[in-house]
Nucleic acid binder design. Structure first.
Length: 828
DNA sequence: GCTGAGTTTGTTTTT
DNA sequence: CAAACTCAGC
């Protein structure tokens, strides 16, 4: 595209670069990956530093569709980031570039790294869109809703819509089930929701689905689907699927919206493309535009089919496999070299993934040989498993040569992680870490916002932002108790239902409603008065309207009585979580303040205004957005946090997370626990070979997160819902092969009483005490020992646990706690 | 209308 | 084993 229509169109833009504003004739499109000259002669050489040739090629190749098939650990995000920086350095205005990532965390990182590459000049990334699909859609719906309406395609929601998370969805679908008189029959809300979600993902509407439903099951689902969508509509709310589906149909139907979006974003980049679903594919295609002989869309997608782990959520691997068919001019670049893991880890992961038959093989290779074998350990039970993992972590942290290798370096807590298939597995590890005093964080992004007190405060805010949100209103209208009991509320709700208006309107109306006491009616009006005061609308208190988001949140927490309620509860609190509730409310206020501070209108596609052509661009501050805009953006953010967003490496703590949340991250040392049949592969996936392959990919994703050390454990007994049961080791462990794998079995082989009346912890306790006695004889307190790394020291204590540990005082390094199993201590 | 004791129930993964 | 739910008594 040497005579780029795209580039000439921005030639006169006011983009303030030192380089000539008109696009300098780009170095001829590099045609061969092999040419050093191509790369070396580039005016922005620094942007290629540290990249391999295929990566440099991917970065330099700036025109037309580009597919990057990237192996695990090959630096795909880095490559994408460089490409963004490269485009900007070449004179493409940043507001014409959009990159979509999987989590907010990945987006933030990419934005910051791109900025670093651009020498940290803030205006250089002004207007650059780096976000997630869901956040983008929320912004597009708010921004282009009016345009779509003007174009004759009104959205089913207004601009102040609320985003319902899965808890809200469940609450809503429960109400629909009750409303449809199906509550006595067995229609579990979660499975109803997943059936509905699956249809929505296919861009199926409730009406179309109802028309095609013939059997009893689908007709019932159709009824609930219709009721659910109506309830969402009434609450002026959207769920996660709606965000995508509504955006897709808005772009499909409204040529005006399509034109505006295509005009604004000329470069589209999508990370983790193997995990996009159909709606996301449609959105991406419409944003990029079709390929024609005259026009090649600038769409770059990056992904790895071996890391596709979200098909249960509608992700369609065909999106990445058929990219070349959709864009015949697409260039394809494969990044196979792994920069993350040591050779053994990579080799074993490769052995595993080769067991998938529905797969195009891709060679994984590293140019950095060396590294320790991976460890596979069969434990007695989950307690033993936790202790084993922790002992391993300790040995790694202490720099024990047996654990880190002779030329290895100690690992920090923050470089260690535990992965598991289901969230329930985190408990035993957490307990053990807490007992050992090792700092840890569980990557559950929603955990904070899931607390009762925080959800209540947010429900108040959501009512402020959208008074039609009946789900939130019902949650807090009588919290703290203000005399609006169940019966009164039911009558008021029924009245609202009949009148076809939101509950909120009925609460504030002066009509008398049969069966509602004057006292209850007064309470209702009091509630509405309070909420009106917060927004300043329609009251003499309008002057007192909050000036900052944090102030608004603070007022809501105070005026609603939530703070008072939790304060009095804290006085008689029995549990820690009860005592912390007031603190969490304060924390919420802080989070609002932090959001407000970080809020960058230039990074928000809704509020960002591109500088006009021909005029010098002002890098000056944009006007502060109105409070409600800020509140909605805040609530939007809160609704869209991901589990992986909670991973904060600046904390010096071990990270615990599900295998799904681990995607895209890396750690020096990783332990994957619960490698048992029924858990990984999960029992729900066992019946289908396709799903079993996805479980295998999940295991592969977990393994390839590890840079230097990998431990995989299973427990021969595991307690689930209170009952301890025997397990079978995962087939994946067998499939790892024998090369680079060290296997250990701590279970009692040979005679097995096979009954449940010999709890395993008794056995292990016996083993432990004998090992402890033995160790105490070998290393009596006060005796001298030699450590291969720390030298000579004095034994201070021998301690029990899952494995025996010695406290040794060394001359140089001070007192260390060493796991004898690893430490290779030599008695002197 | 509100509270707490007792009972039932359900278990993948998440934007 | 918990969370969610029910229902009787204040």
């Amino acid at each position: 595209m040497s005579s780029s229509g795209i580039h000439s169109s921005i030639g006169d833009s006011a983009w303030p670069v030192e380089e000539p504003a008109s696009p300098q004739p780009r170095a001829a499109k590099p045609t061969a990956v092999s040419s050093d000259e191509t790369v070396g002669s580039d005016p922005h050489e620094a942007l290629f530093e540290g990249l391999t040739e295929p990566q440099a090629e991917a970065v330099a190749h700036t025109d037309g569709p580009l597919l990057i098939i990237a192996a695990a650990g090959s630096g795909k995000t880095r490559t994408l980031t460089r490409r963004i920086a490269r485009l900007i350095a070449d004179g493409v205005p940043p507001w014409q570039i959009m990159a979509l990532t999987f989590t907010n965390k990945a987006a933030t990182e990419m934005r910051e790294r791109a900025l670093t590459l651009l020498d940290n000049v803030p205006w250089r990334s002004r207007g650059l869109t780096v976000t997630t699909f869901h956040a983008l859609c929320a912004r597009l719906l708010r921004r282009y809703g009016e345009v779509a309406q003007a174009d004759g395609h009104p959205l089913p929601v207004s601009g102040d819509f609320t985003i319902f998370n899965s808890n809200d969805q469940v609450a809503l679908v429960k109400r629909v089930i009750v409303g449809a008189d199906l509550s006595t029959t067995n229609w579990p809300p979660r499975s109803v929701l997943s059936a509905i979600s699956a249809e929505k993902n296919k861009l199926m509407t409730a009406e179309k689905f109802a028309a095609s439903a013939h059997d009893f099951y689908s007709r019932t689902i159709a009824r609930l689907f219709t009721g659910y969508q109506e309830a969402l509509h009434k609450a002026n709310a959207v769920d996660f699927d709606d965000l995508l589906v509504m955006t897709a149909s808005m772009l499909q139907q409204s040529a005006m919206v399509r034109a505006e979006c295509q005009g604004r974003w000329r470069y589209l980049m999508i990370d983790e493309y193997q995990d996009t679903n159909h709606a996301q594919f449609v959105i991406a295609s419409l944003l990029a535009g079709d390929e024609t002989p005259e026009r090649k869309p600038n769409i770059t997608v990056v992904g790895d089919p071996d890391q596709a782990i979200y098909s249960w959520r509608g992700a369609d691997i065909a999106n990445i496999l058929e990219f070349e068919e959709n864009y015949p001019s697409a260039r394809v670049i494969t990044l196979g070299e792994n920069f993350r893991s040591t050779e053994p880890i990579l080799a074993v992961a490769d052995t595993l993934i080769r067991k998938n038959t529905h797969r195009k093989h891709k060679d994984l290779f590293t140019s950095k040989p060396g590294g320790l074998p991976i460890q596979v350990h069969r434990c007695r039970d989950e307690r033993h498993e936790s202790e084993l993992v922790i002992d391993w972590f300790r040995a790694l942290a202490e720099g024990d040569p047996a654990a880190i290798g002779d030329d290895g370096k100690p690992e920090r807590w923050r470089d260690m992680a535990v992965f598991y298939r289901t969230n329930a597995l985190s408990r035993s590890i957490e307990d053990a870490l807490r007992a050992e005093g090792i700092p840890y964080t569980v990557a559950r992004g929603t955990a904070f916002y899931d607390r009762e007190e925080v959800r209540n405060a947010l429900a108040y805010l959501r009512v402020v932002a959208n008074s039609a949100d009946d789900v939130s209103l019902n949650r807090i209208v009588n919290v703290p108790p203000r005399g609006l009991g169940k019966t009164s509320l039911e009558r008021l709700s029924a009245h609202a239902q009949q009148a076809g208006v939101p509950l909120y309107e009925v609460l504030g109306s002066t009509d008398t409603i049969a069966g509602v006491s004057a006292r209850a009616a007064g309470a209702a009006k009091g509630f509405v008065q309070m909420a009106e005061d917060w927004t300043g609308s329609g009251s003499f208190l309008g002057a007192s309207v909050s000036t900052s988001l944090a102030e608004l949140v603070g007022r809501v927490v105070d005026d609603s009585g939530l703070r008072k309620m939790y304060q009095s509860q804290a006085a008689v609190a029995k549990t820690e979580s009860e005592a912390e509730r007031v603190d969490n409310l304060d924390e919420l206020v802080n989070s609002a303040a932090a959001f407000e501070e970080d809020y960058d209108p230039d990074a928000d596609p809704v509020t960002f205004v591109a500088p006009e052509s021909g005029k010098a661009s002002e890098a000056g501050a944009s006007p502060a957005p109105p409070m409600l805009v800020l509140l909605r953006a805040y609530l939007e953010r809160v609704a869209l946090v991901a589990d992986a967003d909670a991973v904060d490496p600046s904390q010096g703590a071990v990270t615990l997370m599900t295998l799904h949340a681990a995607k895209g991250l890396e750690f020096g040392a990783a332990a994957i626990i619960g490698l048992e049949e029924g858990l990984l592969p999960h029992s729900r996936a066992a019946a289908s070979p396709i799903e079993t392959e996805e479980e295998r990919r999940l295991c592969f994703v977990g393994m390839t997160r590890a840079m230097r050390h990998l431990l995989m454990t299973s427990a021969s007994r595991r307690s689930q819902r209170g009952v301890s049961e025997r397990t079978m080791a995962s087939r994946f462990l067998e499939e790892l092969g024998t090369a680079h794998v060290v296997r250990t079995d701590s279970t009692d082989f040979g005679y097995d009483p096979g009954s449940d009346d010999t709890p395993s912890h008794q056995l292990s306790a016996k083993d432990r005490s004998s090992a402890l006695t033995e160790a105490k004889q070998l290393y009596p307190v006060g005796s001298k020992v030699r450590h291969p790394r720390f030298g000579v020291g004095t034994v201070e204590a021998i301690e029990g646990g899952a494995s025996v540990r010695a406290k040794v005082k060394f001359r140089e390094t001070g007192t260390k706690t060493l796991v004898l199993e690893y430490a290779r201590l030599e008695p002197l």
